[in-house]
Design a protein around this nucleic acid. Structure first.
Lengths: 247, 247
DNA sequence: CGCATGTTTGAAACCTTTCAACCGATGTGG
DNA sequence: CCACATCGGTTGAAAGGTTTCAAACATGCG
């Protein structure tokens, strides 16, 4: 294995969690040519209505997708962690319907569409794996939609805490789990559709209830069961368990 | 053309709006074998966590996808009109993460996954077209997420009225447009996350403002511009314009 | 007719936003 | 080194929007 881009091998892990690939296919993913790019915090590196020619693999840092209304109000519709492909869907729909913005300083690996098209054309399993990866992103979005519409403020905030914990810990969450916390309360407000002020109050409630707390740049799970109950959280939508053979 | 299933030719139209297909590919879609099935109103014909082997093409009637929280509360995450494939994504993710329920009496054409896999394997353009179809569904979901989180109740209801009008009229909406209205106020509440009572009040406000009205089983646009402004609606997410050559 | 379903309305309770202010940490320039 | 600006977090009180509860009305259908 000559080329070894960590962002790609993280993405490959993610693909292989849900799809069966052979050595050639693995190698094709790991050898994808691209350029690294450092992105400053709070920078839209994909703008709304851009016609996109590249996909962005997140190497480090955190980025989010933002949808918009005609009056310019924005809402976060997805969070991309290292190992995620932020806009794989652009392969089949290049006219971007959401902006992608860095949350903190982010390192991305930028790959021209052409190369993805080529390896997808050469392997049925890979093209399915890509499609599946997008489908799982859509499943997460669907759950965000449900929680944003059906949960009270406390539940929404708790739900995101649960999700972040699962995604950062690959599904293994328990009392005492802790992980790096990179979002501000304003970001939580962008995700939940609440005001930052109210997010603050909900975080306090969660803390005072002994479910979880954020101190400094770290989140600590104090009582996972309590947090899950607040959030009515069911982690299956994240598809973090290895899927059974899927053609 | 021997086989001629209207549901499939509607779906093909939808695919060709966004993808370029040749005669063989067209014929492959139109010849997909399947069974018609009549579904009574308010029936979950795909249940949560089912392991799905079929995709459902909607021939007539209206169906919706429903997500769920752990406590059983439900939220509609998509509406499927005739010509839509209700769960094409199940091709790559058979474990259903949302239920699909008929809204009124619905005629579906049920196709075994195997046949979709076969024609997708035979044609790169088709497999891209399928993936793209799913991606556009995801774009609609994303916009629902934005409107549900960012709009006040009046805007949410107006937004769905706008969307339904565009989807039923293929994007051509104007003062005086009217189309069959099949949703109850409870369904609107399922979509917007509001209570049915409040949906009722918002519909009245929209009516009294002279923007739109629902009488009997029909919706009438009275003032399209006014309705769009209320909803901060931008129809581009529906991708109803014919897309330029997309590989 | 009687029943089920969907719509309509009012009033009180509740939740979230808004506005305003303050705190603490961090970083910058004089 | 301190003054100052900025950013994120915190808190209180009033205003506003939405839900809840309860009841009544309309319609279609057996």
């Amino acid at each position: 294995m000559i080329n070894h881009v960590p962002a790609l091998s993280l993405w490959l892990d993610r693909l292989e969690l849900r799809s069966v690939l052979n050595d050639d296919e693995r190698q094709a993913v790991l050898s994808l040519p691209g350029q690294f790019e450092v992105i400053k915090p709070n920078h839209d590196f994909v703008r709304l209505d851009d016609n996109v020619n590249h996909v962005y693999s997140i190497a480090s840092g955190l980025t989010g997708s933002f949808g918009q209304l005609k009056n310019g109000e924005r809402q976060m519709t997805a969070l991309h962690l290292p190992g995620n492909m932020a806009n794989l869907h652009s392969i089949v729909l290049p006219s971007s319907i959401s902006a992608i913005r860095s949350i903190n300083e982010t390192l991305v690996y930028r790959i021209t569409h052409k190369f993805i098209h080529t390896i997808a054309a050469d392997s049925l399993a890979l093209s399915k794996a890509f499609w599946r990866d997008c489908t799982i992103d859509a499943a997460v979005l669907s759950q965000w939609s449900v929680m944003n519409a059906r949960l009270p403020a406390l539940g929404k905030v708790a739900h995101i805490l649960c999700e972040m914990c699962c995604r950062f810990s690959n599904g293994i969450c328990q009392d005492g789990s802790s992980f790096e916390w990179q979002l501000t309360q304003v970001h939580l407000a962008d995700i939940t559709g609440l005001t930052a002020v109210h997010v603050n109050r909900m975080l306090r409630a969660i803390r005072e209830d002994g479910a979880a707390e954020i101190v400094g740049r770290r989140m600590h799970v104090l009582n996972w069961t309590k947090l899950v109950t607040m959030a009515k959280f069911d982690p299956r939508y994240l598809a973090l368990e290895k899927l059974a053979e899927l053609l």
